[in-house]
Write a protein that binds this DNA or RNA. Structure first.
Lengths: 242, 242
DNA sequence: ACCTGAACACCGTTCAAGT
DNA sequence: ACCTGAACACCGTTCAAGT
């Protein structure tokens, strides 16, 4: 016999490993995503993990790719909101919030510099592609805006895209450091985060400006239409907490 | 004899430990800041490290506090730039760039959630105070701006302060992930980063807007006055690299 | 009173031996 | 052809024994 392990089994086990790693990440935190811990939960031995992933760093990268693929999916869903270019960008801001409900914000921790350095190039490749897809999605909306005359022709598009992305990343980072900023609770911070992002878009003169249009109510509309399901879940979740 | 170890010796050793940790952080990266590695470099044994710091996490927190104290110092220097409120804010943006020249951007890695959780409360306290000092500095400039009528009376100050802080943090985070965004080199990204921050200030209607005033030349002016020394060093450093 | 370094636990990674 | 688990290296932390 040449091969006992069908490709199917291989793939199944890989998803099993990542599912478990994801569970550990969400329930116990990034520090506990160890080969040891995964091996405890998986129905085969520690050594076999290394037939599927070359190193712990590769597991983390695979996990991060999966998470970022989820970000792209939910952003796309947001982008499908029917409305003006800026409404759609607002819907993506909503999407980024919806994502944080399900995924705890431990991503920057996963992707420490050593992880990036030690991971296999294939994963870099995949991650880079994913990020280009996400930034491309944002970019396409901004391009539509220029076409529609809702954004000036001479807008520095790159700056706008990386800027909003950086602001979202940075805001999540502050929120993650709750121990340092205890004043930034989930509840108070979410509207502040939206406010910052919209002010930035105002800075780029993306029409209609937030003075002329109430993007808070757009946010509510997006939640109750495109993300109705996720929002209902979230409300249950909040109810359980009280 | 009651005490061989004078307080002076105690403090000296603590700074020695932190100096070494800082060196390791800058030259070898956050992953190498280990008790083991520090013990190799210090003229006393590993066990004695624990007379000075309760845990590795406490060393990291002490180190981070020191780094953030440096941020506050350089921000203050920036804030001393003589000019309008927005010019001074621009000078702080310059300061945040100057800081990244000397300090590699590994701070978020140091302060992983586990680190925050395991560190002693004293360090939380210190770090929280430091961040309040930094945010307070930003806040005082914004308050001056309102007094001077350069920022609308109804500006959401908290949002503005946390917003610019988050944007700076997020932009540094993207830059740190060079492996994912190879297009964001130091050289191309620095002006983009400044651009984003100024657009955001434009969004808050901080006068004079960047359409009316060339903040790139203010940036140059700040570098060649307040940060003349640091800038000269930096130019040498860049020359050496080529 | 303070320091040392051996000892233990934990984790990543490898690989000889087993099936 | 694939899996296992013992073995090794590395690191954080403790503490009995030494000075």
């Amino acid at each position: 016999m040449v091969r006992k392990l069908t490709p199917k089994t291989l793939l199944e086990r890989e998803t099993q490993i990542l599912d478990l790693a994801h569970d550990i990440l969400l329930t116990e935190g990034p520090a506990f995503v160890t080969m040891e811990r995964i091996a405890e939960l998986v129905p085969f031995s520690k050594g076999t993990l290394y037939n599927h992933f070359k190193s712990r760093e590769d597991v983390l990268m695979a996990l991060f790719c999966r998470i970022q693929a989820g970000v792209h999916a939910i952003f796309s869903k947001g982008a499908s909101y029917p409305g003006s270019s800026r409404d759609r960008y607002a819907a993506i801001i909503a999407a980024s919030e919806v994502r944080s409900w399900s995924e705890s914000d431990c991503c920057p921790q996963i992707i420490a510099p050593e992880v990036l350095e030690k991971a296999s190039p294939e994963y870099h490749q995949r991650l880079t592609e994913l990020h280009h897809k996400i930034l491309g999605l944002l970019s396409s909306i901004a391009t539509d805006a220029i076409e529609a005359g809702e954004l000036p022709r001479d807008t520095p598009l790159e700056e706008l895209i990386y800027g909003t992305w950086a602001l979202a990343v940075g805001a999540d980072e502050l929120h993650r450091q709750k121990m340092i900023y205890p004043e930034l609770t989930e509840e108070t911070f979410a509207p502040i985060r939206r406010g910052m992002l919209h002010r930035m878009l105002d800075g780029y003169q993306w029409q209609p400006l937030s003075l002329e249009r109430d993007y808070e109510s757009i946010h509510q509309k997006v939640l109750s239409t495109v993300f109705a399901e996720e929002w209902a879940e979230r409300k249950d979740q909040l109810k359980d907490e009280n």
